[in-house]
């Protein structure tokens, strides 16, 4: 690494504070060692595979079915979360009611509860003899071991992403803006659809994208409730594990590569949304 202290090096502005070399050097080194090099291996391994082999294992019938399932259920769960997450964020940002602090803390439960615990708990609830499943079973509704079960697990995992994206924006949206709409003759409904909703739109979209991205990669909470039938309820992360257990490293790597590219695309999308909304609304 070039010495950051070199005078000719203008990539860093001078500062009176000491420790740049140490902290920057250490953090970049650690980042490279723990994150960048390991992540790079997956792309190198894919590249070493050859294009046709990559397509063959990365887009096999079983793999495509798994992608479709993972992305489809993550999108469905993201949508459910966009709606209910907005509702929860609205209620938390706007109203006061007894127990609000507890409810506010509870929203972060999916961040704190290990996914495996969530997985077995949801399965226990929705299994045909479970607390909720026993009432759904006679109606012919199967949740556990179907796509609906996967969606429920992903709704659990993704909810806080939407709530925590939208809530601060809603809270920041000045009361005076809504009053302004009212003085100009807007009904409450018009104020919501034309003033509030467009203002929180980017945050809602960001929350949806975060929940979606998390849902696509989610493993622990899903595998217990999904039933894991190849081609039907086998999510992509599970397929990677299955391939690994069969020592099919190429298959696992190819599927992982496809998923990682998809994740990075989503990440890029999120950044674009945020840059766009910042540029429009001012810093």
């Amino acid at each position: 690494m070039n010495s950051p202290f070199s005078k000719r090096n203008r990539w860093r502005q001078p500062s009176v504070l000491p420790g740049f070399g140490l902290t920057f050097g250490f953090s970049l080194g650690w980042l490279t060692l723990i994150v960048l090099i390991p992540l790079a291996t997956i792309f190198l391994k894919s590249a070493g595979m050859g294009w046709s082999d990559f397509i063959k294992v990365g887009f096999s019938e079983r793999a495509v079915a798994a992608y479709r399932l993972s992305f489809g259920t993550a999108a469905a769960a993201g949508l459910v979360n966009a709606i209910f997450g907005l509702l929860v964020a609205w209620v938390l940002a706007r109203y006061s009611f007894p127990g609000k602090k507890v409810v506010n803390a509870l929203v972060d439960l999916p961040f704190a509860l290990p996914t495996a615990v969530a997985g077995i708990a949801l399965t226990a609830l929705y299994a045909p003899n479970g607390w909720i499943g026993q009432y759904l079973d006679p109606l012919g509704i199967n949740v556990a071991f179907t796509r609906i079960g996967i969606i429920i697990a992903l709704v659990f995992i993704g909810l806080p992403f939407v709530v925590r994206s939208v809530e601060p924006v809603l809270a920041d949206l000045g009361k005076d803006v809504e009053e302004a709409a009212a003085t100009l003759g807007a009904t409450r409904h018009q104020t919501f659809t034309r003033v509030i909703f467009p203002a929180i739109g980017p945050a809602l979209l960001t929350g949806f994208a975060l929940a979606f991205a998390r849902g696509v990669g989610e493993y622990g909470s899903v595998i217990f409730i999904s039933g894991n039938m190849p081609g039907k309820t086998e999510i992509a992360p599970l397929l990677i594990v299955t391939q690994l257990e069969q020592y099919a490293y190429d298959g696992a790597t190819a599927i992982a590569t496809v998923m990682m590219i998809a994740s990075f695309a989503i990440l890029l999308g999120i950044n674009l949304i945020q840059a766009w909304s910042r540029g429009r609304a001012g810093a």
């Binding site: 803006v177 009053e179 302004a180 003085t183 100009l184 003759g185 807007a186 034309r194 003033v195 467009p198």
Partner: peptide, 28 residues
């Protein structure tokens, strides 16, 4: 408030950030 026919200019303007200037003016 909507039926009183008053124009109100807020201290911090309360402009709709996601609308253009023309859309702001046309809102009412």
């Amino acid at each position: 408030v909507a039926e009183r026919g008053v124009g109100f200019v807020f201290q911090h303007y309360a402009l709709f950030k996601h609308m253009t200037v023309a859309e702001n003016v046309a809102f009412g």
